[in-house]
Amino acid sequence: MADNDIILDVRSISKHFGALKAVDKVSFQARKGEIVGLIGPNGAGKTTITNLVTGELRKTEGEVYFKGINVSRMQPFQIARIGLTRTYQVVKPLQGMTVEENILVGSLFGRSDRQNDLNHAKKTAHEIMELVGLDKKKEFKVSDVTLPDLKRMEFARVLAMDPEVIFLDEVMAGLNPSEVEESMELVKNIRTEKQLTIVYIEHIMKAVMGISDRIIVLHHGQKICEGSPTEVCDNPAVIEAYLGKKYAKEVIKS
């Protein structure tokens, strides 16, 4: 995969917590506009990889290239400013602010860091709130909205940052089936509309299978398999490590 379309290139990154190898020499790439699914059982190292790529954790080894720039030693805010960002599995809303302000901060800072016009940023924030369906809650303080709305808000906040690559860390956890459906549509639409590259981390198998162009499977911090959704489902190692035969068949049938 040496084509020019590669926007994110993760080269053999590792993270050790003491004796635990939470991430062990993982490499992967993402092309412009692609949705890459990142799956694996709990504790496989998905969130840790996100933290390593976005600069929130220091890598034990390895390099990350984004748009050809080595971002391995950059701080999170610097990485965010050139267009790589993420949502949090455990939501991190800006406490004490309203939903609108949370998203406004995204559009004020984020990639368009030179955005100094508050009114223009507000307009962007409003557009995005409408897009994700938060416009009715904009005056609510974050302490007054439900968890699904908080997740939606985090997603909106990330969009407001106008990024090129986003890591979505289990954005669907805690949503009911119809909300999952809705959310999948949203992600797909936004991908096409904004030419986003998405690294999609999810536990809900159906969502990952239905949405991803390509899937990477992690287990005990290592990449055990990579390929199209069907290839991944057929892979014996994956079935053993993660899916369980019955479930895998179910997915293939559907």
Partner: peptide
């Protein structure tokens, strides 16, 4: 009430999130 002020308030709200949103904390 400026852009810088939103940065200040974001730090109180959640410093890690602020940093990952592009604020030079």
């Amino acid at each position: 009430n400026s852009k810088f002020g939103y940065g200040i308030r974001s730090i109180k709200a959640n410093e890690d999130a602020a940093n990952s949103m592009g604020i030079n904390t």
